[in-house]
Amino acid sequence: MTVPAPRVPGLVELLDRVERAVAASLTPATSAHGVSRDGWRVLLMLARGGGRSMGEIASHTALPAPTATRVVDRLVADGHAYRQNDPVDRRRVLVHLAAGGREVVERVCGSIERRVGTALGAVRTPERVQLARLLEDLANPDPE
């Protein structure tokens, strides 16, 4: 007896393909700078500014706290981030983006944006803005 294949909605398959394409672009770009994908996620978070606690980093990256600590340890050892006591609560340590981390973020983002720009070359600016908004909505769904 043959079991029919499950129906795979077109959008789900497309999102899976896009995720793989992003990984295929990001992994070599971040690896060239000695940064893992988890490290990359931390660098992007730190690039938004301000210091972040280890709890915030673990929550944002969906990493277990010990793994987040190892990732940050590596970023600090490589000069991409640094730790500093919170000026408001001296018991708390915040992680900040170092100059080396900022350089990695700028180079990787520039490289990926050029690639995406080439792929979207025929797409006009209003459609690019609309696409960015749709992707933002998809990445940050409202809780129901």
Rank of each mutant, 00 (worst) to 15 (best):
A47Y: 01
G34R: 11
Y82H: 08
R114N: 08
G101Y: 06
D78H: 08
H60G: 13
L75W: 03
V76L: 13
R115M: 07
R41C: 11
G121E: 03
G100E: 05
T27A: 06
D142Q: 15
T125Y: 15
G101F: 05
V8C: 07
P87Y: 12
V22N: 03
R114F: 03
E13F: 11
L63P: 10
V104M: 06
L43G: 00
I57C: 02
T61M: 09
Y82E: 06
V76P: 01
H33I: 04
S111P: 00
V104K: 02
P6S: 08
N85E: 11
G50K: 03
L94S: 06
A23M: 08
P64Q: 12
R37C: 01
T30D: 06
N140L: 13
E56F: 02
Q84K: 14
A47H: 12
D142R: 15
E103V: 08
N140D: 08
L134V: 11
L15M: 13
E127S: 14
R70F: 02
H33R: 15
R107C: 00
D89I: 05
L138M: 15
L63H: 06
R107Q: 11
D137S: 13
A77G: 09
R90C: 01
R83V: 10
A29P: 02
A21D: 04
E106S: 03
R41W: 05
R48Q: 13
V76W: 08
R91N: 15
M45H: 04
V76I: 15
R37N: 13
R90H: 13
R115H: 11
Y82S: 07
M1L: 10
A65D: 00
R20H: 08
T69M: 04
A119T: 06
P28W: 07
Q84Y: 06
G50A: 01
A5E: 12
R90F: 12
L134R: 10
T118M: 12
E106N: 04
P28S: 11
G117Y: 08
H33D: 13
V12D: 12
S53Q: 05
A132E: 06
L134G: 07
A122G: 08
V12K: 08
